[in-house]
Amino acid sequence: MFISPMLLETAPAPFSDPRYIFEPKIDGHRLIFSQQNGIVRLYTRHNNDCTRQYPEIASAQFPHDVVLNGEIACVDPLTGVSDSESVMSRFQAKKSDMITQLTGRLPVTFVVFDVLSYKGKDLRKELLIQRKEILAGLSLPNANFGVIPFIESAGEALFTQIQARKMEGVVGKRKDSAYYSRRHSAWQKIINWTYADVFITGYRKAEFGWLAAVQTDKCAKIRPAGIIELGANPTHMKAFYGVVKPLITGEDRDFVYVEPRIRARVKMRNWTKKGLLRSPVFTEFII
Rank of each mutant, 00 (worst) to 15 (best):
K166C: 05
I286H: 08
C74Q: 12
K205H: 11
S84H: 14
V147R: 14
V67R: 14
R253Y: 09
Q163C: 11
T194V: 02
A178Q: 14
L127M: 13
V112E: 12
E9W: 01
T235C: 02
Y257T: 03
R269L: 13
P246Y: 01
F2H: 01
T272A: 07
V170T: 11
A58K: 03
L106W: 03
P246W: 02
Y43I: 00
G137A: 03
V198I: 10
R45L: 02
F208T: 04
D114K: 14
F255E: 11
A93R: 08
L116A: 04
F22C: 06
K245A: 04
A220I: 00
Q215G: 06
V112M: 09
V87M: 08
V67K: 14
Q35S: 02
M268Y: 01
A143K: 13
Q161R: 11
V115S: 05
R52P: 06
I72L: 10
L42E: 00
E71Y: 14
F240C: 05
E156N: 04
Y179E: 08
K25R: 10
A213P: 15
H46P: 00
A136T: 08
K221N: 15
E56T: 05
P234I: 05
L127Q: 13
R124L: 12
K245I: 01
D49L: 03
H236T: 01
D114T: 10
V266A: 00
A213C: 09
G28V: 10
T201W: 01
S82G: 07
E56I: 00
D27P: 01
I222P: 12
V147T: 10
A212C: 07
A212Y: 12
S89L: 11
A178K: 15
N192G: 03
F91I: 00
T160L: 03
A143Q: 10
Y257Q: 11
V258I: 09
E126D: 14
K121C: 07
G226H: 05
G28R: 02
L68G: 09
F91P: 00
E23M: 06
I286N: 08
L276F: 10
F15G: 11
H29D: 06
S117M: 15
G70W: 09
F62Y: 03
G202Y: 04
L158Q: 09
A60Y: 00
E71V: 08
L211M: 14
S34D: 08
T51Q: 09
P18E: 04
L42H: 00
R253D: 14
P260K: 05
K189V: 15
Q188D: 08
I227V: 15
L68T: 02
L247K: 02
R131N: 13
S185F: 12
T109R: 06
Y179D: 05
K245W: 03
L230V: 03
N144Q: 04
R30K: 02
I227M: 13
A206I: 01
V81R: 04
F285R: 11
K173C: 07
T103E: 09
K125D: 15
R52Q: 14
Y241V: 01
R223G: 08
E207F: 12
P5G: 00
A225W: 13
F22H: 13
R263N: 06
I134A: 04
P141M: 01
E251K: 13
P280G: 03
T216M: 15
N233A: 08
S177G: 09
I151L: 11
I32H: 02
V115A: 06
